[in-house]
Amino acid sequence: MHELSVAQSIVETAVEEAQAHGASRVVGINLQLGRMSGVQREPLEFGFEISSKGTAAEGATLKITEIPLTIRCRSCGAESGVEAWEFICRVCESGDVEILTGRELAIVSLDVE
């Protein structure tokens, strides 16, 4: 359970970016959260509420977009959506695959004022 420290990083990053853009308050944070980011949504939301208290991001809305897990096969080039325990190409069944999406843990935009 490292969601609290991840939440703290989100708050720090958001406040830093807001200040860099001359804003005094963060009102919304748009976050991409991959299915296989290793971070759970609920504890992250809870951690954010706690760690934003007393900062310029207090009361900000944390808008989370969950990103599905997709892979690309290095053998046949096919792209497929998979479950986290099945890293097998859906077309040719090769296990030689790379993750395309699903590891995201990133702020993509901020609403500031």
Partner: peptide, 12 residues
Amino acid sequence: MEIKVVRDILAA
């Protein structure tokens, strides 16, 4: 105001 940023949380 919306600012576009792409900041990976684990980048540090």
